[in-house]
């Protein structure tokens, strides 16, 4: 044992940091480019969304009487409220963009192929979860744009054959957008979907560490030159 052991080493020894470090931080990776950072960037933005979202729930009120006013309060009266909400608002759009860029990188490099099919499949569910988060979050300010976006979105669900009208009622919590719609969209936005997102992210990232990332494909001509 080392004589000079500080508290960090004390903790590291007990949690098995060496193994974690080897598996995650100092693992071997092929020579890659900046496009390979899109996944981590998406995760970083997701973390920002979690933090700012949790803080926003301190002031936001998911009722038709108060939703709009509570957001006005956040924007005008709460210290740096405009910044926290701004980060969440722009973070949402950026996250959707990043998720698509990440997906395209994986697709064009053929990185979804064996043995990474399951990572890709989990990724498609992550994409859907992110879009669902965007859709449910869009209603929460309860302004004109939110209202009609939800009207359009739920009407799309309504044209699904056979179960459409029922699906729309489940989505809205009734026949029209109202108190129940706002409450359930809020619930999905802050509980169901984030929980699903965390589960999928952990599984997705576990597979990335377990299998390792693929090197950029080598094209036939380059191959001959080499």
């Amino acid at each position: 044992m080392e004589e000079k052991q500080n508290w960090l080493q004390w903790i590291a020894e007990r949690i098995g940091w060496e193994a974690i470090d080897k598996a995650m931080l100092t693992r071997k990776v092929p020579k890659v480019n900046w496009a390979f950072t899109l996944g981590s960037t998406t995760m970083f933005v997701a973390i920002i969304q979690f933090i700012t979202g949790i803080f926003l729930t301190m002031y936001y009120s998911p009722s038709p009487d108060h939703a709009y006013d509570s957001i006005n309060y956040i924007m005008n009266d709460v210290t740096l409220g405009w910044l926290i909400r701004g980060l969440h608002h722009w973070g949402a759009s950026i996250m959707v963009i990043l998720v698509f860029l990440h997906m395209w990188r994986v697709f064009y490099y053929g990185a979804y192929k064996y043995p990474r099919e399951l990572t890709w499949i989990l990724g498609t569910f992550l994409l859907l979860t992110v879009l669902a988060l965007g859709f449910t979050g869009y209603l929460l300010p309860f302004n004109q744009k939110s209202y009609f976006a939800t009207q359009v979105g739920s009407s799309m669900a309504g044209v699904v054959p056979v179960i459409g009208p029922y699906l729309k009622r489940v989505l809205l919590g009734g026949n029209a957008i109202g108190a129940l719609t706002l409450a359930r969209f809020y619930s999905w936005h802050i509980w169901f979907l984030p929980a699903l997102l965390v589960i999928l992210m952990v599984a997705h990232i576990y597979l990335v560490f377990r299998i390792g990332i693929s090197a950029p494909p080598v094209f036939a001509e380059e191959d001959e030159e080499a």
């Binding site: 210290t79 740096l80 910044l83």
Partner: peptide, 12 residues
């Protein structure tokens, strides 16, 4: 992130 969040937290 933390500094604005703290201001946000104690604001009222």
């Amino acid at each position: 992130i933390t500094v604005p969040a703290l201001g946000f937290f104690v604001s009222p």
